[in-house]
Computed example of a mutant assay.
Amino acid sequence: MPETSPVVLVTGGSAGLGKIIAKTFLNAGYRVMIVGRSTERLQNAADELDGGDRLAIATCDVSELAQCHELAEQINTQFGRLDTLVNCIGTSDRGVVTELTADRLKQLWQDNVLTTLHCSQAMLILLEQSHGSIVNIGSLAGKVGARYLGGYVTAKHALTGLTQQMRLEWRDRDVHVALVSPGPIRRPDAGQRYAQHNSEALPESASAPGGGTKVKGLPPETVAAAVLKCAQRKKTDLVLPGHLRCLIAIGNAFPRLGDWLLLKFSR
């Protein structure tokens, strides 16, 4: 690929949604670097993606700021530029507030917020040079409260606020910051990952995608296409599925009605 072709860095790109996002950007003509903590998983993903010299891997713990700065040097050395950063690392949860511990909340905050903060800070200069974009992967749980999601709601609300603050502060540096907030995403183990929860306070429905919300699972390809749209068209805030944005707005304007709707759309 010519040196002028755009470059994207995808954290959490060794599996799941991150890998689908990497594939989407490869198909759109980008040069791609995927980042994760396991070299073996990254290599397996690279073999599957088959991106040739347009695809690179980098082993990095992006919760560590020093490693993020090393990662910025690596991508600058290898590709000479960075046009888009996709922060796709995150951890979900199941539980009730009465059993939520400080240690668990700290871990969720680190995985969902601190990783985004550190990686964005480290890549800022490169993105400023390219007038590039940052796309953070949020969640519907970052727009509304929901039952049975443990500390995940708190962490994703923090990410929503951080994203807007970054967007407002970095617009003068010509770096665009966007948020994609999807509902439950289809995956092979949907409904099984949380089946063995340890709390008697949780109903069986809590192990279902979205904690039992009555929202159809989204194809990961749909979410990946929205991420690409944010990067290329400078979209600011996308909610998936789109019709839920109206319900979110109604809930914010009329909290009692919002609570009723949340209870109605969850089991």
Rank of each mutant, 00 (worst) to 15 (best):
I20W: 15
F79D: 02
V175C: 08
L179R: 05
P6N: 01
G242L: 12
A45G: 10
V144P: 12
G13Q: 10
L262Q: 09
T154R: 06
L261T: 02
N198L: 06
E64V: 04
D189V: 06
G12Y: 14
C246A: 07
G52N: 14
A226H: 09
S207Q: 09
D53W: 07
N198S: 12
M166C: 02
S181A: 13
L17K: 06
V239P: 11
K229C: 04
R94G: 00
A15D: 07
G211Y: 09
V144C: 11
E200V: 02
S181C: 15
D189H: 11
L82S: 03
K143T: 02
K156D: 10
T101A: 01
C60I: 02
L140P: 14
F25Q: 03
L126V: 05
V135I: 05
K106P: 01
L140R: 15
Q164S: 07
A158C: 07
N112V: 02
I20P: 15
G145S: 06
T101V: 01
V97R: 09
L17W: 10
G51P: 13
V8T: 13
Q107Y: 04
F79N: 03
C119W: 07
T59N: 09
N76K: 11
T39N: 14
N44K: 15
V153R: 09
A22C: 10
G191Q: 11
E3M: 10
D189T: 11
L65H: 03
F254S: 04
N112M: 01
V239I: 13
R267N: 10
D237P: 11
C68S: 03
G151P: 14
L238G: 01
A155V: 05
I75P: 14
A201G: 03
I34G: 09
I57H: 06
P184V: 00
Y152T: 02
L17M: 09
V7A: 03
K156L: 08
W170G: 00
L218G: 03
P6R: 08
D53N: 15
L263H: 15
K156F: 13
A225I: 01
N136D: 02
M123H: 08
A28N: 05
H118F: 09
P209L: 00
D83H: 05
G142T: 07
E169H: 04
D237Y: 11
A46M: 06
Q121Y: 04
A226S: 13
A58R: 10
I250K: 12
S92F: 00
S92I: 01
R245K: 15
T84M: 06
S5M: 13
C246K: 11
E99W: 03
A56Y: 06
P188E: 05
T59W: 08
F254R: 10
R233F: 04
R54I: 04
G95Q: 02
C230E: 01
K235T: 00
G211K: 09
A56D: 09
N87T: 06
Q107M: 05
G51T: 06
M166N: 08
L9I: 05
I137F: 11
L159A: 05
